[in-house]
Computed example of a mutant assay.
Amino acid sequence: MDQTVAELNQKIDALTEQVAFLTEEARQQKRRRQEWEELQNDLTPVAGEMYRLTVEQLNEIESYVQLEDGLRLLKRLMRNTRNLEQMLDQMESVAAMWQDLSPLSQDAFLTLMQRMDEMERKGYFAFLRGGMAIADNVVTSFTEEDVRQLGENIVLILQTVKEMTQPEIMTMMRNTAHVIREEGPPVDVSMFTILRQLNDPAVKRGLAKTLSVLRTVSEN
């Protein structure tokens, strides 16, 4: 009799646990249903407004876009899904690389700005502006025919400049300029004074060079 009562009590306890489980499950289902109903109530006005706005926007572009165009674009996007994924992967790679290079680019930009400021203080940009003004004057002073002739004779011009910039030529030109600028002509120049200067070896060499130059000019 005691064993039967014990078994009955066990069954009652098990049944009580099942009833409690079902009660809790029903309560949770009721709570979820209420939450879903509340969500529906909150989203219904939003969905209605979105639908209204969508209809208005579609009405505005109805004359430009047809339903077939949208379907064709959708199918094209679906066909190019892999290409889009590759493009997105490349964009992610570029974004990651930019994040890695961003500190370096900032340092390079600061260095560049410092260098440009230094060049400005030293006068590089002022020199370039002056060079541009000179270039403008040169361009406006020569005709197309002048430029063509310059191109034909550029080698000869460069060779002449090369010869003119030799040390002995530059020294002679500097000394000549110095004499012309610093030393004035004698007050009283007589023929005897000139003949006496002809005995100076330096004067003789100068006359010889002058005569050579005159001969070269006459030959050309």
Rank of each mutant, 00 (worst) to 15 (best):
T140W: 10
V94F: 06
M119W: 13
S190R: 06
L110P: 00
K122D: 08
Q159G: 00
E85L: 08
E92R: 11
S102D: 04
V189S: 00
F127I: 12
D188Q: 11
L158V: 13
V139K: 15
R115E: 08
R115V: 05
R129C: 00
F192K: 11
Q90C: 09
G131M: 09
G184I: 03
T140Q: 07
E92W: 08
D136R: 12
E182H: 13
G151E: 12
D89K: 09
R115L: 09
D89V: 03
F142I: 01
Q166R: 14
G123Q: 00
N175V: 03
P186W: 02
A108V: 05
Q90S: 14
M164Y: 11
M173K: 13
P185Q: 00
M97F: 01
D146P: 07
R115F: 06
T140N: 12
T176A: 14
Q106H: 09
F109T: 12
D107L: 07
M113Y: 06
V179C: 02
E183L: 13
E168M: 01
S102G: 06
R174Y: 07
I180S: 09
G184A: 06
S93R: 07
D100L: 15
V139G: 04
R181V: 08
V94H: 01
G131V: 00
M91N: 11
Q106T: 11
D117G: 06
I169R: 08
V94M: 09
R181W: 02
R129G: 07
V161A: 02
M132A: 09
N137F: 05
A96K: 14
E168Q: 06
E118F: 14
M87Y: 10
M97Y: 11
Q99A: 12
E183A: 07
H178V: 00
Q159T: 14
G184D: 00
M113V: 06
V179N: 03
N153L: 12
V155M: 08
E118K: 10
P103W: 00
A177R: 13
Q90L: 10
L110S: 13
I154D: 05
V94L: 12
S141Y: 04
L104P: 07
D136A: 15
P167M: 01
G184S: 09
L198I: 02
L150T: 01
M116P: 02
M173V: 14
K162G: 15
A108Y: 03
S190I: 04
E120D: 10
G131N: 10
P167W: 08
E144F: 10
M87L: 13
G130D: 13
F109D: 07
M170L: 15
R121L: 02
M97Q: 15
V155L: 07
L84N: 00
P103S: 02
M132N: 13
S141F: 04
T160M: 09
V138C: 07
P186G: 01
G123W: 04
R148H: 15
M116H: 06
R148M: 15
M91E: 06
